[in-house]
C-alpha cells in the first residue's frame, strides 16, 4: 500500500501537551513539514519561547534553545551570526513576542536579521490562565478584564504586522490563520515563503498565525475557530504585508 502521508520527521514522537482544540499542534506540524520539505533538519536551530509553547523543544526534532521570556529574536540573532549557514527560527506566542519581547522583535526586524519568526497569536496569555494580552480584542473578556477590554482603560490591540511592515529590514511578512483546510494550506505557503527569505539571505521573515484558545476563551473548539474567523480576523486582517520576487 502506498503511504500518502505521515508524521513529519522534523517532529518527535512525543504527544503534544496542548489543550483540546488548540491550534498549536497544527502550526507545529506546518513548521515541521516546511523544515522537512526544504531539507532543513540538518541545519535548523529553533528557539523556544515562554508561554504555552515553552515545550516546543520537546516536539521539534532539531537543535533547540529555550530563551528567556521575550528574548527569542535576540537569542536567534546571536545563533545566526555565529552560524550564518544555519537555519534559525523562533516559535513565539503573543504574550512573549507582542508583550515582553516587542522590543527584541522590532529591533531584530529593523536590523534585517536573517531569521524566521513564527508568531502564534491567540489574543490572550494562555499559559498563565487567560489574562489580557496586548493582542486582546476590545470588548474581549479575559481574567484581568472580566468585563471585557475597555480601550479607555486598557488601550487597543497591538497590530504587530502593521507595525513591522514599515521596516525596510523585513523581507517577508504575512498574517494567516489555520481555521479551515484552505487557510491551513495558505499558512503553510506563508511559512515556506518566510523560510525562503532566510535561505536567500534577504532579511527578516515573520508569519503571524491567528490561533484559537478554547480553554481560556471558554468556547468549544468549533466556536473558537469561528471566533478567529469572525472576531480576530476583523481586527487582524489576513494578508501578505511584504513579499519578495
Amino acid at each position: 500500500m502506498k503511504q500518502v502521508t505521515g508524521r513529519p520527521t522534523a517532529l518527535t514522537d512525543k504527544p503534544f501537551h496542548y489543550c483540546p482544540g488548540c491550534t498549536h499542534g497544527i502550526i507545529h506540524r506546518l513548521v515541521a513539514e516546511a523544515l522537512e520539505e526544504d531539507n532543513l533538519r540538518g541545519k535548523a536551530i529553533g528557539i523556544a519561547s515562554v508561554g504555552c509553547s515553552v515545550f516546543a523543544y520537546d516536539y521539534f526534532n532539531c537543535d533547540m534553545q529555550q530563551a528567556a521570556h521575550g528574548r527569542a529574536p535576540a537569542v536567534a540573532t546571536g545563533i545566526k551570526r555565529a552560524w550564518p549557514d544555519s537555519f534559525v527560527f523562533t516559535y513565539q506566542g503573543d504574550g512573549d513576542l507582542a508583550s515582553i519581547g516587542i522590543a527584541e522583535t522590532i529591533h531584530a526586524a529593523s536590523r534585517g536579521e536573517n531569521i524566521t519568526v513564527i508568531f502564534v497569536n491567540n489574543s490572550v496569555y494562555g499559559m498563565t490562565g487567560g489574562q489580557m494580552a496586548p493582542t486582546t480584542l476590545v470588548g474581549q473578556k479575559s481574567t484581568t478584564t472580566p468585563s471585557g477590554r475597555d480601550a479607555t482603560l486598557h488601550g487597543y490591540p497591538l497590530p504587530v504586522c502593521e507595525m513591522l511592515q514599515v521596516l525596510p529590514g523585513v523581507a517577508y511578512l504575512a498574517r494567516v490563520s489555520v481555521s479551515s483546510p484552505a487557510k491551513i494550506r495558505a499558512a503553510k505557503r506563508a511559512i515556506k515563503r518566510a523560510f525562503a527569505a532566510q535561505l536567500r539571505g534577504i532579511g527578516f521573515g515573520l508569519v503571524e498565525i491567528l490561533s484559537s484558545c478554547p480553554t481560556n476563551w471558554h468556547l468549544d473548539p468549533v466556536k473558537a475557530l469561528e471566533f478567529v474567523d469572525n472576531q480576530m480576523a476583523a481586527q487582524f486582517p489576513l494578508q501578505v504585508f511584504r513579499d519578495f520576487e
Binding site: M127, T144, T145
Partner: peptide, 13 residues
C-alpha cells in the same frame, strides 16, 4: 503575570 504569582494580581484585578 508570571507563575506562580499570577493569581495574586489576577484576583486583585
Amino acid at each position: 503575570p508570571i507563575t506562580p504569582q499570577t493569581e495574586i494580581v489576577q484576583l486583585f484585578s
